[in-house]
Simulated assay, not measured.
Amino acid sequence: MQNLLPEKIDTLFINCNLATMADNALSIIKNGALAVTGEIISWVGKEKNLPDNFEIRCKKILDCKNEWILPGFVDCHTHLVYGGSRSNEFEMRLKGISYEEISKKGGGIFSTVHASRNASKESLFTSASKRVKTLLKQGITTLEIKSGYGLNLETELKILEVIKQLDKKFPLHIEATFLGAHALPKEFKGNPDGYIDLVTQTMLPEVKNQGIATAVDVFCENIGFSLNQTRKVFQKAKEVGFNIKLHAEQLSDSNGAGLASEFNALSCDHLEYLSLSGAKKMAQHNVIAVLLPGAFYYLKETRKPPVDIFRKLKIPMAVSTDLNPGTS
């Protein structure tokens, strides 16, 4: 950074190595220094280029002892707010029981939905706070959190309100995503279209009115929601002003990525079964491919996302934790 060192500096980091990530590269500065004034990085460069008597400008000087300073990580796909525990499912997975079988037996998402509906806002905030603190320690400074463990208006709003509280409490940026179409709740068994009507006609407008989410996601899958049902959610989401995301092609090729691309989605996530035609649509609409290796390995999947195709088509890729109570 070819600018002058400010007259007033809150914190100056010296004796450090910097990965500035300028110009889409690491742009490493060895033996560097970095100045912070307020909430702004006000100077960065070689320590030897600091002016004489720079110390008198600084409230605090920290010697990094030749350690690294990196940009904060972005965790762009999490399900961090939930009630209960699904540790018993780990044993089930070790015995070879599939994710679909666990779900059909009332486990998986449905177990967490039951616990989340019965949990107080305070208990959800307390448990989620521990997870946020762990991510902060790992260098994550921007975090996306989805709802989706309520599957009714009251609990979906409760989860989104907790996400808003977390954003206010902790020194990182949090974006909330409404994932009301995560699974079909038991009270709508045999009536998925009726539940999608609830999501589109009641939940989405209320979430928008309260301003507690910026994006909408859907689990488009053979154990989730069909392509037509997903389209209905996206149409309403766009109508009221939400960004679009999608759990796409995790367990089968449902052509969800192609649909999401038509709505200029921010991202399609998982993508193990993505087809070439779906990838081409993502490339045409600048949709980011979010890879979730934690879920892939936990579920013992064998089909990997088509990373070579992403590279060939120059589709941007992101890697995220998919932090959730059951599969990552």
Rank of each mutant, 00 (worst) to 15 (best):
L246E: 04
N24Q: 12
K314Q: 12
N31S: 14
L136K: 00
E175M: 03
A33D: 07
E156N: 13
A215S: 12
L80N: 13
G107M: 10
G278K: 00
A33M: 11
A318S: 02
L259V: 02
R93H: 06
D23Q: 09
A257G: 01
P71E: 08
K314H: 14
L291D: 04
L276T: 09
S87F: 14
P306Q: 07
K236T: 08
I102E: 03
K48E: 11
N118L: 05
E187A: 10
N264C: 09
R57K: 15
L227M: 08
S328E: 12
L70F: 10
I69A: 07
V44Q: 05
T202M: 11
V36L: 09
C58P: 05
G108I: 01
P325H: 13
F296L: 11
K48D: 13
I9E: 06
K65P: 07
L80P: 10
P185N: 06
K59F: 07
V287A: 05
S42L: 10
I145G: 03
L251P: 05
K281I: 05
E55G: 11
L271R: 03
V36A: 06
L274M: 03
L50T: 08
E154H: 15
F234P: 12
G256W: 01
I145K: 01
G96H: 12
Q250F: 01
E161M: 03
V287E: 06
S328F: 12
K46E: 08
S116A: 05
